[in-house]
Design a protein around this nucleic acid. Structure first.
Lengths: 195, 195
DNA sequence: GTCTATATAATGATAGAC
DNA sequence: GTCTATCATTATATAGAC
């Protein structure tokens, strides 16, 4: 891995663990095993490096999510697979946590990939839900767009509850709860006739 | 308002806006119109002042939530009133945001009120849901505990989505979505016989 | 109680040698 | 490309006068 890559990876880790304000250039350099000059040779400064890190994290997040969204099964099964996927729950969402960083939100360039990632997630889930509704897997009364927002919010909020409790239990409960709410939508609308 | 009170209020505002790491004693003093000596006379330091601020914010949050929980209407109506209550959505949750502050989570004293507040919210909603189920307002298959976790998560996650989008729309969508999912639980279980 | 030094470390960067 | 000064500013206090 090149020095530039190591700097980006270190920044990704530190942004996840400590946020933008809590991450100093010095800490990044030490974790990457690079000197000051090295960092400022490859990147204009902390914001420039953070942008590269956030973009890479955003790409990885989307790719991992798409694994579940494009996987096998009904819409509900794919959503359950996504929500129940193995996650570093106690570390939280590496993208969602940046919304609490005022310096990130204040910088249009840093903010854009955060906004795009969460919008993309909602859109992608909207598609999956709409598809499930068309196929009769989900109740016709279910609104794909608002339900997609709910599902993404449950994830993001589940991380918050887990971090507060220092336990994955509230995250798991929130996921179980929303899947429980989604399941009757199948029973009531499509009937208990199938499989 | 006393100097100590002004310091606590300034800290509350800054913790909400910029988090713990992003809030300096100097910024607190300037907003409170107090000098260094004044702050260190009343409080042992930044953690001590933050603790007082977090405790006060926690109390206010619980009191405001209880207004809706103990209000009139069915369980679902009270939950809808709570979720749809007027909020500073783009500022996020003053308690939930602290879960992203590593220095807060690393300090047992600072962490405790954060953990307690979110636990309390889940417990309180669990009670409201259990009550609604007993009264036949909600489907018997609905699990109060996991559903309560889902509702709190939707709130916390809704804030994240709103901040990312710099718009209240995703928050409102998430709330509408979860209320939509809760509503069929009434129709299916209790039947469309009532009112 | 409040104020003004004073102090130590960290932050975020620049300059220039190698 | 990487390294070692160097630098101005901020963070987080302490000390002691008033």
């Amino acid at each position: 891995m090149s020095t530039a890559d190591r700097l980006i990876e270190s920044t990704r880790e530190l942004l996840w663990e400590r946020g933008y304000t809590g991450t100093s250039p010095k800490a990044i350099q030490q974790r990457a095993g690079a000197g000051q000059g090295s960092m400022y040779h490859h990147f204009a400064g902390k914001p420039d490096l953070a942008l590269a890190a956030i973009r890479r994290t955003s790409e990885q997040l989307r790719a991992k999510a798409d694994e579940q969204f494009t996987g096998p099964g009904t819409a509900l099964e794919r959503i359950a697979a996504y929500l129940r996927r193995e996650r570093d729950v106690l570390k939280g969402c590496p993208i969602g946590r940046l919304t609490q960083d005022p310096d990130v939100m204040a910088d249009a360039a840093l903010r854009a990939p955060v906004a795009e990632t969460l919008s993309w997630l909602r859109e992608r889930l909207t598609q999956v839900l709409a598809e499930g509704r068309e196929r009769g897997e989900l109740d016709a009364s279910l609104d794909p767009e608002t339900t997609a927002a709910t599902i993404v919010a449950v994830l993001q909020g589940g991380y918050v509850l887990a971090r507060a409790a220092n336990s994955v239990a509230p995250f798991d409960a929130a996921v179980t709860g929303v899947l429980g709410l989604l399941t009757p939508a199948v029973r009531c609308g499509a009937g208990a006739t199938g499989s």
